[in-house]
């Protein structure tokens, strides 16, 4: 997910900035040489275009090769029955889509993804905000605490997953050991082996892993809240709670909304942690759209079905992203466009 964002940034920024730069330059050149006539104008026009092409081309080429072409190929693949070897010849139309959308495992996966999207925001937003507000006060061991909270996010997902897998091991794992020692029982099939518990256990691990990102982003956002506002509020006799509610949180809005967006996209694409902890099991209790498509694609060589599932995932993610953009993020982007 993070890679995606960077690629898009890299691709987008040279695309816009040289264009603006070039436009700026022509407006400066024109009044200086008005008498030279049209030819110079055409030249500079051409030069401007060449410059744009020169600066934008590499980024566009990369974007095309690694974003557009794969998307187009996935769409193409989704229309064929293909086992992974040989040319695409067995055209099946939309049959792969029908089989994906009527597959209980896939619809289950979509539900799991949506549950994870919802729960991530419901759990991590208040928790992350509370921790960020606490850590924003000057206190002993502040930076140590920040580091501790952020460490899980820095750990490689696979490494964290393997560690949790060992901790959650039924009977011989540390967590069951501790529970046994204090006299509490643990589930018969283990935390990850019981279809009714696996998704919740997964949520706990995901919260542990991603809370750090929320806290760090919120803390960064809090640095942007002007000190004077707090001073003014204090002069007015506002309590700490009132200050947080009326000043900090509203001014943190853009950060919260951006984090919500990242969290949503991350939850929709969730794969590695699930793959390591449960492989989508037990009894398909933790499948996500991404584990479904890997399972169908690389494990079963049903590349057409995997292609269709990836297109569905793309459409769901795009739909939710656009919706979020329109309903929530627009508040942040509007004034900025106005300023430009």
């Amino acid at each position: 997910m993070a890679d995606d964002v960077t690629t898009r940034d890299v691709a987008a920024s040279p695309a816009t900035s040289p264009a603006r730069g070039a436009a700026g330059r022509t407006s400066r050149v024109r009044p200086a040489a008005p008498a030279r006539g049209g030819r110079r104008g055409v030249n500079s026009q051409l030069r401007k275009r060449l410059e744009i092409v020169f600066f934008v081309a590499p980024a566009l080429a990369l974007f095309g090769l690694f974003v557009i072409v794969p998307i187009a190929t996935a769409v193409q693949m989704s229309l064929f029955r293909w086992k992974g070897i040989g040319p695409l010849v067995d055209f099946v139309g939309l049959r792969n889509y029908v089989s994906v959308l009527t597959n209980d495992v896939f619809t289950g996966a979509v539900v799991h993804n949506l549950v994870i999207v919802g729960l991530s925001i419901l759990i991590q937003l208040p928790l992350g905000l509370a921790i960020a507000l606490l850590l924003n006060r000057r206190m002993w061991g502040q930076s140590a605490l920040r580091t501790i909270i952020f460490v899980p996010y820095v750990l490689a997902e696979v490494v964290a997953g393997v560690i949790w897998l060992q901790l959650l091991q039924p009977q011989y794992g540390v967590i069951d050991g501790i529970l046994d020692a204090v006299g509490l029982g643990s589930p018969e099939q283990g935390w990850l082996g019981d279809p009714d518990l696996a998704l919740w256990t997964l949520m706990v691990v995901l919260t542990w892993k991603y809370l750090g990102l929320a806290v760090i982003l919120f803390l960064a956002g809090l640095q942007g809240v002007p000190e004077e506002l707090y001073e003014a509020a204090q002069l007015d006799g506002a309590t700490w709670w009132q200050v947080q509610r009326k000043i900090t949180i509203p001014l943190l809005g853009p950060t919260l909304r951006t984090w919500g967006f990242l969290s949503m996209i991350g939850s929709l694409q969730l794969f590695d942690m699930v793959w390591i902890l449960t492989r989508g099991g037990p009894a398909n209790a933790t499948t996500t759209m991404a584990t479904f498509l890997i399972n169908e694609g690389t494990e079963r060589s049903n590349f057409g079905i995997a292609g269709a599932a990836s297109v569905v995932l793309f459409v769901v993610a795009l739909f939710m992203a656009v919706l979020y953009q329109q309903l929530i993020l627009r508040r942040d982007t509007r004034p900025e466009t106005g300023r430009n």
Binding site: Q171, L192, G193, T278
Partner: peptide, 8 residues
């Protein structure tokens, strides 16, 4: 089977 065989 061993305890937790579904996640083994």
């Amino acid at each position: 089977f061993n305890k937790g065989f579904l996640s083994t």
